[in-house]
Amino acid sequence: MDVLVFSTSVKGQKQVSKVGTLLTKIPAIAQWSFDLEDCDNILRIVASGVSPKYVETLLQKAGIQCQELTY
């Protein structure tokens, strides 16, 4: 399992739910969470075989800015 970390434009619970609906449809994603108290509105994903670019594109198509953070 890989941990992917992204900076997002998600601001509130409505957008968290919107993203959650997209992410839960992907069987390779085991877990996801947001930290909206962080200045980058962090999205963390635990998954197998999911590329960061795929997540970025998926969220951007839904109107959410998303960029992988390297750590």
Rank of each mutant, 00 (worst) to 15 (best):
4 L>D: 06
18 K>N: 07
54 Y>V: 09
64 I>C: 07
33 S>N: 14
52 P>E: 09
22 L>Y: 12
38 D>M: 01
56 E>F: 02
21 T>R: 04
47 A>F: 03
58 L>M: 08
38 D>T: 07
6 F>H: 04
25 K>W: 02
13 Q>K: 07
5 V>S: 02
1 M>R: 02
37 E>V: 11
9 S>K: 06
68 E>L: 09
25 K>R: 13
40 D>L: 15
68 E>M: 11
4 L>V: 12
17 S>N: 12
7 S>Q: 15
17 S>L: 13
11 K>H: 06
41 N>G: 12
37 E>Q: 13
21 T>W: 03
38 D>N: 15
21 T>M: 09
61 K>P: 06
60 Q>T: 15
6 F>L: 08
3 V>N: 02
69 L>W: 03
44 R>E: 10
18 K>T: 07
58 L>P: 05
57 T>Q: 09
20 G>T: 12
49 G>V: 15
29 I>W: 01
69 L>Q: 11
18 K>F: 05
20 G>Y: 01
34 F>P: 12
34 F>K: 00
9 S>T: 14
23 L>R: 09
38 D>E: 05
58 L>D: 03
45 I>W: 02
40 D>P: 04
14 K>Y: 01
71 Y>G: 11
36 L>Q: 06
2 D>F: 08
16 V>T: 12
28 A>S: 13
44 R>Q: 11
50 V>T: 05
36 L>E: 01
15 Q>F: 01
45 I>T: 02
8 T>I: 08
13 Q>C: 04
28 A>R: 14
6 F>A: 00
37 E>P: 00
36 L>H: 00
2 D>P: 04
52 P>Y: 07
22 L>E: 14
3 V>R: 04
57 T>S: 11
43 L>I: 14
11 K>S: 12
47 A>S: 13
11 K>T: 09
24 T>N: 06
61 K>V: 04
27 P>T: 00
42 I>S: 02
50 V>K: 01
39 C>V: 12
30 A>C: 02
50 V>Q: 01
10 V>S: 05
25 K>H: 10
14 K>I: 08
69 L>E: 09
47 A>K: 05
62 A>R: 07
59 L>R: 06
20 G>D: 05
27 P>H: 04
64 I>N: 04
59 L>Q: 07
64 I>Q: 05
15 Q>N: 02
28 A>P: 09
5 V>R: 03
65 Q>R: 11
11 K>P: 00
29 I>T: 09
66 C>L: 08
35 D>I: 13
9 S>E: 08
39 C>P: 11
64 I>D: 03
